[in-house]
Design a protein around this nucleic acid. Structure first.
Lengths: 249, 249
DNA sequence: CTCCACTGGGTACGTTGTACGCGGTTATGT
DNA sequence: ACATAACCGCGTACAACGTACCCAGTGGAG
């Protein structure tokens, strides 16, 4: 009942006032959970497994965290902290957003399980909040806040969308225990059957021509990112708002 | 062991040659599962629940589907079938993509649980395949296949990204059993505390100014979509490839 | 020194996906 | 026509999950 009072994990104090010193901490638990999720996926980070990782009993975790879902919120915010936003905004919005996009992508690739966490309402943990401040600060001088949200949303969508695709191939191999070529050999009959049927000319083109990309994933990402930034540029006046804007529309 | 031979759900025949007539079908099972997921979320669509829905025993489902994960693949492809692609490509790529984007978004909103399905390697079910053919056919005459993939990927990212955000708010309410205003009242103290601290000016701006949007979600979507299409337009020559292109680059 | 709010953690419960095996049914080979 | 084997639906059973509840022990506040 006292528990139900805190809807928000971020408002619940980590430790009550009195009593013996706790043996563990939220940060330590979160760290262990992230370590396990990195190595074996989010579903491997069970309460028992996390507890074992830090040498605790399973039920001890509930002294620090109300539920597994809340722990996952903590993990997600911990990840946001990996995105370095020092020096943002720098004044050059394009450079800032390029850096941010690169770091976001790198973070996702380091922690692919982030794709599996269902964000319910945006969970405003400390790292998330700092990120919002710095990131939205980049375009804040140029566009109204709704437009800013919309543009940053577009950028985030692009990064998340592309990296999701990138992740999912790797994920399948990881948990099926197959290498990529083994998987290819296994699923070849199906693809081949589709191609041979002649009913799917464009699908065939994709499989036969685009399967061996002449660009690395990194280059593909940067190429697409430039396009997105160009798109954003059309909505960003070159001088901060408040100045009498030239007819740049 | 015979089971392991089919890596792909789409290659495994629904029914073997001999034996008594099955009482159910994949389609029927998938339909029931979708119905439950629509009403109560994907996690409510357990094997027992689905079986009960069609009046079967839990283990009977495994005569039709090798695992729950595979059933979810079936469900996902079933959803792709809701996207109407008749008459695509029509010749007007902008109209085609606008229509597609609208239908994709509507489908997601009808079946929000789609956000929770982890696509591993793209699962090429029949509906997915048809969609690929028609959708990629829209830009196929204009751009090379890699570029096509990239542009369609951008569009998909935009739709998925925005609709994910839209979904997640509603989801929280659904499963916490709170109305939006109740939730607001509950989480207000935290938001308020952040605002009052004065440390997060931009976050404050978002919460106080942008929380009451002057545009409906639909209008926001269409507005952002136009921007994305403009962005795509810069990469699409106005005449089909093969023609000597004017210096539009 | 006493008290009690707190600690870590063992036990137990309900729910999940699914392996296994049963007795009944039916298309097929003869 | 009939034996056979392949299939059916499904009851039972099990391991793993999140977590409610309880308990003995601990250490700071009075």
């Amino acid at each position: 009942m006292a528990d139900a009072e805190y809807v928000n994990i971020w408002m619940r104090p980590e430790r009550p006032a009195r009593g013996p010193k706790p043996a563990y901490s939220r940060a330590q638990i979160t760290e262990a959970a992230v370590r396990i999720a990195d190595a074996e996926g989010l579903e491997a980070a069970t309460m028992r497994r996390i507890a074992a990782e830090i040498g605790a009993g399973a039920m001890s975790l509930y002294r620090y965290v109300p539920s597994r879902d809340n722990l996952i919120e903590l993990m997600a915010d911990r990840l946001m902290g990996e995105i370095d936003v020092t020096g943002l905004p720098s004044g050059d919005w394009r450079a800032d957003l390029t850096r941010y996009a690169g770091e976001l992508r790198a973070m996702w690739l380091r922690h692919p399980w982030i794709a599996a966490v269902q964000r319910s309402l945006p969970s405003f943990g400390p790292n998330q909040l700092l990120l919002i401040e710095r990131l939205m600060g980049v375009l804040d001088p140029f566009v109204p806040i709704d437009e800013n949200l919309s543009l940053v949303g577009l950028l985030n969508s692009y990064v998340e969308g592309t990296v999701r695709e990138e992740i999912s191939s790797a994920r399948e191999f990881r948990l099926s225990g197959l290498t990529e070529s083994e998987w290819m050999a296994r699923s070849y009959p199906y693809i081949d059957q589709l191609v041979k049927s002649g009913q799917y000319p464009i699908f065939t083109k994709i499989v036969t021509e685009a399967r061996q990309p002449h660009l690395s994933r990194d280059e593909q990402f940067r190429y697409g990112l430039r396009r997105v930034l160009d798109c954003i540029a059309t909505a960003v006046p070159s001088t901060p708002a408040g100045d009498p804007r030239p007819g740049t529309r």
